[in-house]
């Protein structure tokens, strides 16, 4: 009988290696006298500090009898400003106020710049993913077209895009195409990422379609379907399932590649991280946090695609 490997032992070895690695990281930071201060990062994720409400003009404060509304009446005339839902009030009824005075504080949660950057990263990734899939699908289909002109155009597209660095493409999109078509930063960033990813998606689509046995197309055509009907109803649904694992990899790359758009001054997660580092002087904590947030996004995507794969495996 074959000897069964000791699962417990190797699980233990795995944990030991991970723990040793983490302690090495910690020890080396101690070695350079780095003071870990995770607290400093938190306000840049979620800001729970009470915000002060300041008077927008010179005038008089009026506090309602139940202490729930504060009305600021301007001296110069005009609409009074009403403040509600404050946590603390710093003026009394009838007080004179001057522009810029703190009249009350509001305690509400605000998202910090890192979280804002993460949202921007998500927006850019999602928008470019949708366009990349659409462009990639058509380029992939054109890549196997029987029409020589279409086929060669698609091959040229794929070769040019795959043969040049994304960073250079982003610059070209922003400074050349963006100027010609007067695109804003966000559009230029999304466009360059979509065009870049589409070239890879196209190759995945092509290999997916070519992995379907030719008998499937023949069967569909023999039933009277047109080429397009056969593609839509028979070939692409099957190819879709097979391309999910490589697509997942490509989409994860897309999320990570989106960090490059920070070079055209889009405040994505990476750029937000850089800004926060210069404000906090806590580079280790910030960059670890940024890395963790990328990992959360890619991990969630990877999990969703795995889930989809399992669902589609019903017919296997």
């Amino acid at each position: 009988m074959q000897k069964q490997p000791n699962q417990m032992l190797w699980q233990g070895v795995y944990l030991a290696v991970v723990i040793i690695f983490c302690s090495v990281v910690y020890a080396s930071s101690k070695h350079i006298n780095y003071n870990w201060n995770w607290q400093r990062v938190v306000p840049y994720l979620i800001n729970t500090e009470p915000q002060s409400v300041r008077a927008p003009f010179d005038g008089t404060a009026k506090v309602s009898t139940d202490d729930k509304t504060l009305t600021l009446v301007p001296d110069a005339g005009g609409e009074p400003v009403v403040v509600k839902k404050f946590s603390a009030i710093s003026v009394n009824d009838g007080d004179l106020i001057f522009e810029g005075d703190q009249v009350a504080t509001i305690s509400n949660w605000r998202i910090g710049p890192i979280t804002e950057g993460m949202i921007t990263t998500l927006e850019i990734s999602l928008a470019s993913l949708v366009f990349a899939v659409i462009i990639g699908l058509f380029i992939g289909l054109g890549r196997i077209s029987r029409n020589l002109a279409i086929r060669q155009l698609c091959i040229t597209y794929i070769e040019i895009i795959r043969g040049t660095p994304l960073l250079v493409q982003i610059f070209i999109f922003y400074f050349f195409i963006g100027t010609v078509l007067s695109l804003d930063r966000f559009t230029a960033g999304v466009a360059s990422l979509a065009v870049f990813t589409a070239a890879y998606v196209a190759e995945i689509v092509r290999s997916g379609i070519q992995s379907i046995p030719p008998g499937q197309m023949e069967a569909a055509r023999s039933l009277g379907m047109t080429y397009v009907q056969a593609m839509v109803n028979v070939i692409l649904p099957q190819a879709f399932k097979r391309t999910l694992p490589p697509m997942a990899g490509q989409f994860i790359n897309l999320i990570k590649d989106s960090s490059l758009v920070s070079v055209i001054s889009i405040t994505d997660l990476t750029k937000a991280g850089r800004e926060v580092v210069s404000a906090t002087f806590a580079p280790f904590e910030v960059w670890f946090t940024v890395a963790l947030l990328y990992l959360v996004m890619t991990g969630a995507l990877s999990w969703m695609i795995q889930h989809l794969e399992k669902k589609l495996a019903a017919s296997d």
Binding site: P213, G215, Q216, E218, A219, A220, S222, L223, V234, P237, Q238, K241, S315, D316
Partner: peptide
């Protein structure tokens, strides 16, 4: 109508 040696049913 056509029937193939390898059936060619649509597996999905």
């Amino acid at each position: 109508g056509m029937v193939f040696q390898s059936f060619n049913l649509f597996p999905h």
